[in-house]
């Protein structure tokens, strides 16, 4: 008994000290950018598959948003569906169902865009996730990474990607890439360099059969 009480007191004190410290965010924030330019709209079924997988993986308290990449992506209007899951698992399940329905609608109704403003989408993603302040921030880019900015749009803006995990998904090869593969490899290298210089981490997953690696 003499040993039990002091050890219990120490345990309680350590628990209290732990509790009084800075609260650590353990939730995840996932922002998915979907390229809707040109022929890439044909890949939307695959994007839906990724969204469903991500939805299945997310837990109560996590944040998830899906936004489209089109001519001007730095806009809240581009966010097609967004949700922060409730604390209660039953409510979370309902939210997941509703989210899936929104995405279904988006996939059915979306039209091909003329330009591909990936940087604008990234800026919007960074802003959104920073506002939500999740524990881990992941940006999924479902695109061929070929950026085409409309004339007059300034996208020469530095990205602040410190603490962000960027995952490029389904980076398809364009016809020109087939002729000159260095173009494709150069595109990937450019993006990797840009992201890593901005403080983020960069991964490419083209095999959608191993989606389990997309979230940290």
């Amino acid at each position: 008994m003499k040993i039990v009480f002091p050890s219990m007191a120490v345990l309680a004190c350590s628990l209290l000290l732990n509790a009084c410290g800075e609260p650590v965010a353990r939730n995840q924030g996932v922002y998915m950018l979907i390229d809707t330019s040109g022929t890439y709209t044909r890949e939307l079924d695959k994007a839906q598959q990724v969204i469903n997988f991500t939805l299945a993986k997310l837990n109560p308290g996590d944040t998830f948003a899906v936004a489209s990449i089109n001519t001007g992506s730095f806009s809240e209007k581009n966010i097609q569906a967004k949700v922060t899951f409730d604390d209660r698992p039953s409510v979370t399940n309902k939210q997941k169902r509703a989210f899936q329905e929104s995405i279904q609608q988006f996939v059915e109704e979306t039209e091909a865009a003329a330009y591909t403003d990936i940087t604008g989408g990234l800026l919007q993603a960074v802003e959104y996730l920073n506002e939500k302040r999740p524990g881990t921030k992941t940006i999924l880019i479902f695109s061929d990474l070929k950026e085409e900015i409309k004339e007059g749009y300034n996208r020469d803006v530095p990205l602040a990607l410190d603490g962000f995990n960027l995952v490029a998904l389904n980076v398809t090869k364009l016809r020109s890439d087939n002729i000159d593969p260095t173009e494709y490899l150069g595109r990937l290298e450019d993006w990797q360099g840009r992201v890593e210089q901005s403080g983020g981490s960069w991964r490419v997953i083209n095999d959608l059969e191993r989606l389990e690696k997309i979230l940290p």
Partner: peptide, 13 residues
Amino acid sequence: MTEMVGGTSYIGS
């Protein structure tokens, strides 16, 4: 219990 007290609150770890 997560349904009653929520699944995202922590005390320590």
